[in-house]
Amino acid sequence: MAGVMDSVNQRTQLVGQNRLELLLFRLAGKQLYGINVFKVKEVLQCPKLTILPRLNPVVRGVAHIRGGTLPIIDLNRATGGPGLEDISTAFVIITEYNYRVQGFLVRSVERIVNMNWSEIHPPPRGTGREHYLTAVTRVDDQMVEIIDVEKILAEVVPMEEGITAGIIDEQTQAEAVSRRVLVVDDSLIARKQVTRCLEEVGVEVIALNDGKQALNYLKDMAERGEDVTKELLLMVSDIEMPEMDGYTLTAEVRNDPRLSGLHIMLHTSLSGVFNQAMVKKVGANDFLAKFRPDELANRVIDRLHALRGDVAE
């Protein structure tokens, strides 16, 4: 498995092709789950865990790995099931989200599959653990559930979601009232976080679930004769989304003359230098790692000032 993790350079070629690679794993039962390989740093047999007082119940302990101490989260317990019983035979998937590194305890790790985002679909209502799912797909006629990791992390390790006092002034709020921002994210918790932040700035928010929905929304605006670049202050888009990812959405917007002037900020838990390079490759204007409310607010304020003429576009 470690050898597979070394293929980052090869995986970057997937960008702009609406493709991804999923690491498949199982929890307590036969159900298959998937996680984007870009989030995975390492997969290893569960190491010895140290139990600390007052840990969240879904955290089975902490592990000392590569000179650091990481919380190990039992994914089965985090999604409402019982904790994994025999962790001596379990595996830990070391991941990085929003510049935080943690391990997810799983019963077994299967393999990596290369897929198209068009094969990844929003979860049907009332199916499985929909409350903790962002998407579903099929691999070899088996249903694969993709867990909303951002929701789990928000519950286990809550982060500050408010904007620091003094960042937003009355003039900014007055200017923001007439502005709209399109937010695109498949994670319900992420949409709520971004929406609350932007509404605190003062803008109106239109929130959609994936890139395909967003592209159709923008094209419908253009079909109605609306000037998208004037109607929308900017679009804030996640990268990982079912149906169409943020990279492909950006490329599609840039390829449509009616939409090409839209200011696009990619906002993702996929942190790292790789994403900075890919943002330029697909033509986005900006990139911001989740979730930093002060920084997000400042970027929107900068955009307002740019249109006011205080700074250059």
Rank of each mutant, 00 (worst) to 15 (best):
L20A: 10
V59Y: 01
L49E: 05
G283F: 09
R60K: 11
I239Q: 00
T127W: 04
S118V: 07
L55P: 03
E223G: 01
L105Q: 01
A90N: 07
E240F: 04
R54I: 14
D6K: 15
V177K: 06
L49I: 10
Q102E: 15
D141A: 13
I206G: 02
I189A: 13
V139F: 08
V139N: 01
M5S: 13
D310C: 00
E200I: 06
S187G: 06
S178H: 06
L288R: 08
I120S: 01
R258S: 15
V59E: 00
P47Y: 01
P242H: 04
E243S: 05
S118Q: 14
L232Q: 04
Q142M: 05
A251W: 05
V273S: 15
S237V: 00
V279N: 02
E145R: 03
V183G: 12
F91P: 01
V43D: 13
D185F: 00
I72W: 02
E231W: 01
L270D: 02
S178E: 11
V183C: 14
T137M: 07
A207Y: 08
K281D: 02
G29F: 04
I65V: 13
I94G: 00
G225R: 06
G80D: 03
R299L: 15
E160V: 10
V181T: 10
T134H: 06
G283N: 14
D238Y: 05
V59K: 01
E145S: 13
Q142I: 07
V139P: 00
P124M: 02
P124I: 00
S118N: 11
D140T: 15
V194W: 03
V43M: 11
D141S: 12
V92A: 06
G34P: 06
L84M: 15
N9I: 10
L52K: 09
G246R: 04
N114C: 10
R111F: 10
R138E: 10
K151R: 06
D6L: 15
M5C: 15
G80P: 06
F104S: 15
